[in-house]
Design a protein around this nucleic acid. Structure first.
Length: 753
DNA sequence: AACAACGGGCTTTTT
DNA sequence: GCCCGTTGTT
């Protein structure tokens, strides 16, 4: 067991104490994955059957990588049999084989967020509710957080607090929409993401024999990223381990960044209540980053009140200080970062994959894309619209879904007239009305049209009937035929391939290619388990695909590129050079988070996660103006820059050229470097006391005509004041930079006589 | 029933 | 600035 020599004392403890409940609090970069993989390897070395180990991870990618690493320690064939995956994918599989217990078809559909929102939208319409008020996204979030707390539609309607909240928000009918939504999902044989966990809970609650079966099977349970689990997940875990309590949870409260989708930090804090004789291990030595990065990150996170005490430290070298880059616009920010990457790449022995640009929102990628392309730097954007959410892909998958599950309403609506087969909106509307009157699925209505044509004209009736016949003919072959062969034939017979092939615009060609790529993926999926007697079917593929994210399929040509992604998707990754960009108030921290302390603390943890991705060097950047919703707005540097202990910040700041150069700057994209005088450093504490208190420079003396000084813009004169406290806004003319609009509560203006 | 033109809303973050 | 959905036109 030579692998045990590679562990430090607390890691070793966490790996070898395999029996009973245990919690590992693992600081950023402290070898958490190593502990998990070695613990599993150790279990198997000790003779535990891989079949009885269940390991729950946060992403499919993490599961895949961990499996590979375990394979390297103990040999691949044993590692294959471990159940490892996300909560969603593991319990989707279990639900598939147990679906009959809770009245669902085995081939139930998994609705993605888009499907769910579409369904909510039609229900809101049918109820005659105001769709400005009942926006699908808002309703979806309400339903989602109810489900994550195991509140059913009935429970929702009976919950006084929730109903009062909805009423005061002017949306008293959400509970009714929730109930209709559940009914419709059930009728369609569909579960949304949250249902996969919710229904698992129902299954385990109402069918103890099923619960016992899985308790027997999974003798050892491991949960990664425990800080990001919600109540629903917590309860599944608790039920599963109650027989033998061989549970290890690994997490870091400082990296909890998913409270917005129901993650419950209490799960970590309450662990000792559920398992009083648990063992606790703290991994505090960071192996990833320089001292500067570790200590700078510590200096930020200590501003949070809610946290478990720990002391992350490192033996690594001191390292370079954090660079701060200020630019005049989002485009300049793109150029500055691209130039910096270009320079480092030329001067140091690095490759493109050593650089990551991390941002708060996906929409920020554009300016970096343009600048990197101009310098011929290869890059890859993660996130945004996932491959599986593209229109053409969803269209083809909808055929697969409908073939596997005729009642899938969203899939039906999507493909009944795609490609165009002359079934128009009025006919479809008639089907929908009939379905809701007779409490049937769209398929059931469409498939029995010959008896009652609902006023649809004869030609259209026969077209609908042809469509049903085609779907039916594929269904028959679903369980017997090779998934790839069948899938390819569907793409052809449905007319999708022909339709896309006919489109010779660049977008059309790319859509055609995407379909081919999906088919390649299907081929790979079909061949993966060759030699094993169970042949994967198209419905198996659907489950996989529904829960796959774009981060899960890296292609070889993407391996050496600069990486761009949101901080959320960067969790668990590491890069030698990290650029955290768009560090501006209202962007990062997001303006949605500014109302409550706990939301702001989550943003701060997000910043902590971002910074701790860096191994060698971290660069922070912000722009003083950027385009948002199509118009130019002024931005203030993020409070998070101020919060870093200034001794970790580089005095040198890169600034883009001033506005006057705008005609020539487009071509050259040059940057100037200079040493900023200390008095105007963004991290100066002297004038920044306002950032958290909110009182700030918003005082009565700020009136038109007063001369002021701004930390970045220098001297200026107030030319206008508008708005009411606390959102009073000043228009200030700065001789050096021109006219600026500033919110007084953020601007830190200083009056000069 | 199919297509082109216009307008509104949007930005958190993801399984 | 962009994407989506709705409206109006043939």
């Amino acid at each position: 067991m030579g692998y045990l020599d590679e562990l430090n004392p607390p890691q070793l403890e966490a790996v070898t104490n395999t029996e009973g409940p245990c919690m590992v609090i693992a600081g950023a970069g402290s070898g958490k994955t190593r502990v998990l993989t070695y613990r599993i390897a150790h279990l198997i070395e000790k003779g535990v059957d891989p079949f009885s180990i269940l390991s729950l991870t946060f992403t499919n990618k993490a599961a895949k990588e961990m499996k590979e690493r375990i394979g390297k320690v103990i040999g691949g064939s044993e590692a294959r049999n471990i159940w490892m995956g996300t909560f969603h994918s593991v319990f989707a599989r279990i639900l598939r084989s147990e679906a009959h217990h809770i009245g669902y078809p085995q081939n139930f559909t998994i609705y993605d967020t888009q499907d769910s929102k579409n369904l909510i939208k039609s229900i809101v319409k049918e109820f005659g509710l105001d769709d400005k008020l009942y926006k699908p996204g808002i309703v979806y979030n309400r339903i989602s957080s109810a489900k994550n707390n195991l509140i059913s539609a009935q429970g929702y309607l009976e919950n006084i607090t929730i109903m009062a909240d909805d009423r005061s928000a002017g949306r008293p009918k959400i509970g009714e929409v929730y109930r209709a939504y559940q009914t419709r999902c059930f009728r369609a044989g569909a579960m949304d993401f949250d249902d996969l966990l919710f229904k698992t809970n129902i299954l385990f609650r109402d069918h103890l024999e099923v619960l016992y079966k899985y308790q027997q099977r999974f003798k050892y349970l491991l949960v990664d990223e425990y800080q990001d689990t919600n109540y629903s997940q917590y309860l599944i875990v608790k039920k599963l381990v109650s027989a033998n309590e061989n549970l290890v949870v690994v997490g870091d409260d400082a990296q909890s960044i998913y409270a917005f989708r129901g993650a419950n930090i209490e799960n970590i804090l309450n662990f000792k209540k559920d398992y009083p004789d648990y063992k606790l291990y703290k991994l505090e030595q960071n192996y990833r980053s320089t001292k500067v990065i570790v200590q700078a990150a510590n200096s930020i996170i200590k501003k949070n009140k809610d946290q478990i005490e720990k002391k992350v430290w490192t033996d690594n070298i001191e390292g370079e200080k954090l660079k701060v880059v200020r630019t005049l616009s989002d485009n300049e920010e793109g150029k500055a970062i691209a130039n910096s990457i270009y320079e480092i790449k030329n001067n140091e022995n690095t490759s493109f994959k050593d650089f990551a640009i991390l941002y708060r929102t996906n929409a920020q990628s554009r300016s970096f894309e343009e600048s990197l392309r101009r310098l011929n730097i290869p890059y890859k954007i993660y996130g945004g619209l996932s491959f599986y959410q593209r229109k053409e892909i969803k269209d083809l998958l909808s055929y697969y879904r409908l073939i596997a599950n005729h009642n899938d309403e969203e899939a039906f609506k999507r493909v009944i007239n795609y490609p165009k087969r002359g079934i128009g909106k009025t006919s479809i509307d008639n089907l929908i009305i009939a379905a809701s009157q007779e409490n049937k699925s769209l398929w059931e209505v469409a498939n029995s049209l010959s008896q009652n044509t609902l006023g649809i004209n004869k030609g259209t009736v026969s077209k609908i009937s042809d469509f049903c016949t085609m779907i039916q003919s594929f269904t028959v072959r679903l369980e017997t035929e090779n998934a790839y062969d069948l899938g390819k034939e569907i793409a052809t017979s449905s007319g999708i391939l022909r339709d896309l092939y006919a489109d010779k615009t660049p977008e059309g060609v790319s859509r055609y290619d995407n379909i081919q790529e999906l088919l390649n993926g299907l081929k790979e999926f079909t061949d993966q388990d060759e030699g094993i007697d169970i042949q994967p079917t198209l419905s198996d593929f659907l489950i996989d695909v529904a829960l796959l994210t774009n981060a899960d399929n890296d292609k070889e040509e993407d391996l050496n590129k600069v990486v761009m992604m949101t901080i959320h998707s960067a969790k668990g990754l590491e890069f030698p050079y990290v650029y955290i960009v768009g560090l501006e108030e209202n962007l990062f921290p997001s303006q949605m988070s500014l109302t409550t302390r706990s939301d702001l603390e989550e943003e701060r943890r997000l910043f902590y996660v971002a910074l701790t991705r860096a191994e060698k060097q971290a660069t922070l950047s912000y722009a003083t103006s950027r385009y948002r919703w199509g118009s130019l707005i002024n931005c203030e540097p993020s409070r998070f820059i101020d919060e870093i202990d200034p001794k970790f910040l580089d005095q040198e700041t890169i600034v883009s050229p001033r506005k006057q150069a705008s005609s020539s700057e487009r071509k050259s994209g040059f940057e100037m470097k200079f040493n900023k005088p200390a008095a105007t450093l963004p991290n100066m504490k002297k004038v920044s006391a306002t950032s958290s208190s909110g009182g700030g420079s918003d005082n009565k003396n700020m009136v038109v005509g007063v001369n002021v000084r701004h930390a970045k813009f220098g001297k200026g004169k107030i030319v206008n004041i508008e708005g009411a406290y606390p959102n009073r806004k000043a228009t200030v003319f700065f001789p050096n930079v021109g006219q600026k609009q500033l919110l007084l509560k953020f601007a830190k203006l200083e009056i000069i006589d």
